[in-house]
Structures are given as structure tokens and as C-alpha cells.
């Protein structure tokens, strides 16, 4: 793709949603939901269970009919023209399967349309070529996910919707799937990623949308969300400083470093909370000291999970449930 065409694609809007609402049996699942995804962008939908993420992408695929709102996907209306929309989307759906006795190669042949990429290459790239004759029931969870990814990418889609992409994958397979999504970005494919795996969203997404009970809480790049909602880093180390006056001086110096907010000491362990900028200043302070550099330096940077949990707990409309989720997740790292 040359620079001009790349610019044209990037300026185009792949998905545009306005005022989307959807209820199931009187329970509002999507509430006046707006979404814009630019062509070539990788956008993640994150949030607690029941946030409406899956319903939103199912509406985009024409699998569910919203109660109100308008949508455009790749220039088409999924309600009026669902067939054409779906033919340009590659989907990796939550809660869907294949017949137990269908073999991997048969599934790939069944789903391959006229524009399909080379099925053998894709199976090879996703590590399931050696399972070509294995029935679906004989595949492990990870192999099934990889097969679904192959099926999602098979027909060279312009938009790929991946719902719980790496569910059931081991860490190595997860990293490889992440690499595949990064490669999709390189080839200009728009990706809409629905995930509970916040490390995945942080690693893959250009932009992340945090949702709760059908509404958008906040959106931005992962770094922006982290900075807005989980800005503190925690630095811990053990120091050989033991004399009271030396400790007091050290605490005073640390408190005076740029970005440092709180310094505490428990025995010989120092804990410092502060912005990311504080990390470098503390490192400089440690190396400038006459004592040996601590070997147990532990730096915990804020991540997207911490940002989401802060967002959910801070959501004024549903504080009790959000706090419950925070407890379940073990709190912010």
C-alpha cells in the first residue's frame, strides 16, 4: 500500500455508531452507545461482564437488531444490508462452535469464499496444519481458537471483530496470536477487539473504550487511560541505611524528588508512590548513593487493569458492583 492510499484508508471511518440502545427483557444492555473506528485502527472494548461489549459488536454484524440508533459499517447499514456487511467482516465469535465431526480442513474449505487467502498457508501460520484431518471435537481449546482465527481471517476481511480472542490459549499461543493481530494492523485491516484480557488490550490496541452497563465510561489510548485513571507507580527497595539520622535524610531527599508523592519505610524497606517520572529520579538517586545499589528494586508501573478498576469503582452510577469487581480481581496492581 503506498503512502497516498494509506492516508486515504486511515482517514476513512470503518465503523460509526450513534445512539445505539438495546434491551433484553426490559434490561438495558446498550445505552445510547456511540462509537467511531477509523479504517486501519485497532480498537478494544473493555469492561466488566454485562457491560454490553458483545451486544455492541453483534449489532454491528447484524446479528442483533438494536432498539434505537444508527450504524454504518464499512459504509453499509448492518440492519438493511447484513449480508454484504458480514461478507466483508471476519468474525471470531464468543459462544459459537462447529459440528463435532467436521474436520479442520473441511471447515476451512466450507468457509473459504472467492476472495479467500491460501487456506494451507493460514493453517500453517496459525499452527493447525498438522491437525487438518482432526475433527473439531478432537481439538484442544487453544486449537479451536486458532481455527476460529483462521476462519475469521480467511476471506481477507476489511474489518475483523475478535470477541475474547485468546480465551483458552496458553501464554505462548497468546503471544503468537497477538503477533498476528499486530500483523493485521500492518496490512491495514481494522480490528475491533472485545476482551477481558487487559494486558491484551494494552499490547494491541491503538485506542481502548471502557464500558459499563452499556455506556462508555472513558476512551483513549491505553497510555491516556492509564495516565488519567491509574497514574501512580510504586517503587520498592531494601536499603542498607540503618542509622536514624541517615534514614531521616534519605526520606527527606526521596520526598523532594520530582514526581514523588508518598514515601514510607517499613524496617529496611522503602516504598515510594508517585508518577512515572519519579522512577527515573529514584534510579538516579540510588545510583548516586555511596551504598551498593539495591538488588531487590521492584518497580510496579500502573497498567490498564488498574485504570479500568479505578474507572469502575469511581463510576457514580454503580459503585457497589464495581467495588465487588475490584475485590474479585484482587485490586489494582
Amino acid at each position: 500500500m503506498n503512502t497516498t492510499s494509506l492516508a486515504r484508508v486511515e482517514s476513512a471511518t470503518a465503523v460509526s455508531v450513534r445512539g445505539l440502545s438495546k434491551s433484553y427483557g426490559g434490561k438495558l444492555v446498550l445505552d445510547d452507545f456511540d462509537l467511531d473506528v477509523r479504517a486501519g485502527e485497532v480498537v478494544g472494548l473493555i469492561g466488566a461482564n454485562g457491560a454490553g461489549k458483545t451486544t455492541a459488536v453483534e449489532c454491528l454484524q447484524g446479528l442483533r437488531r438494536p432498539d434505537t440508533g444508527t450504524m454504518t459499517v464499512l459504509g453499509l447499514d448492518p440492519q438493511r444490508d447484513p449480508q454484504r456487511v458480514r461478507s466483508q467482516i471476519g468474525s471470531q465469535l464468543q459462544d459459537s462452535g462447529l459440528p463435532d465431526r467436521m474436520r479442520v480442513s473441511e471447515a476451512v474449505t466450507l468457509f473459504a469464499g472467492p476472495r479467500a487467502a491460501d487456506p494451507a498457508d493460514l493453517m500453517e501460520q496459525f499452527g493447525i496444519a498438522h491437525r487438518a484431518r482432526t475433527p473439531f471435537a478432537g481439538l484442544s481449546g487453544g486449537e479451536r481458537q486458532r481455527l476460529f482465527l483462521v476462519l475469521a481471517l480467511l476471506n481477507r476481511p476489511r474489518l475483523v471483530i475478535l470477541d475474547e480472542l485468546t480465551q483458552g490459549l496458553d501464554p505462548a499461543a497468546r503471544r503468537n496470536v497477538w503477533a498476528a493481530v499486530a500483523e493485521l494492523r500492518r496490512t491495514g485491516v481494522t480490528v475491533l477487539l472485545v476482551t477481558h484480557e487487559l494486558a491484551e488490550a494494552e499490547a494491541l490496541c491503538d485506542r481502548v473504550i471502557a464500558m459499563r452497563t452499556g455506556r462508555i465510561l472513558d476512551q483513549g489510548t491505553p497510555s491516556e487511560l492509564i495516565a488519567r485513571h491509574a497514574g501512580e507507580a510504586i517503587i520498592r527497595f531494601t536499603s542498607v541505611i540503618s542509622q536514624d539520622d541517615a534514614v531521616a535524610t534519605a526520606l527527606q531527599e526521596l520526598n523532594g524528588l520530582p514526581g514523588v508523592q508518598v514515601v514510607t519505610r517499613s524496617g529496611s524497606t522503602f516504598s515510594i508512590r508517585g508518577g512515572r517520572a519519579a522512577i527515573a529520579h529514584i534510579g538516579a538517586w540510588l545510583t548516586a548513593r555511596p551504598e551498593p545499589v539495591p538488588t531487590d528494586l521492584d518497580v510496579r508501573t500502573p497498567d490498564l487493569e488498574a485504570a479500568l478498576l479505578t474507572l469502575l469503582v469511581a463510576d457514580p452510577s454503580h459503585p457497589p458492583a464495581a467495588q465487588g469487581l475490584a475485590r474479585t480481581a484482587g485490586g489494582a496492581r
Binding site: M1, T109, L110, A112, G113, P114, R115, A116, A117, D118, D121, L122, E124, Q125, F126, G127, R146, L153, R156, R158, A173, N176, V177, A179, A180, E183, L184, T187, G188, V189
Partner: peptide, 27 residues
């Protein structure tokens, strides 16, 4: 699994493959 050369260029290099209709493939 290798994903370094994901063959997903938007436009197929060759003409669209001739495939049977969905109904015939399903049948």
C-alpha cells in the same frame, strides 16, 4: 506458529477463486 508473513493483503494477487455456492458447499 508463525505470523511474520500473514498472507492477508487486501486485494488478492490473482483473480477470485472459483468456488461452489455456499448452499452446495454446505450440502
Amino acid at each position: 506458529m508463525s505470523t511474520e508473513t500473514l498472507d492477508l493483503d487486501r486485494a488478492p494477487a490473482t483473480a477470485p477463486r472459483r468456488v461452489r455456492s455456499v448452499a452446495r458447499r454446505l450440502l
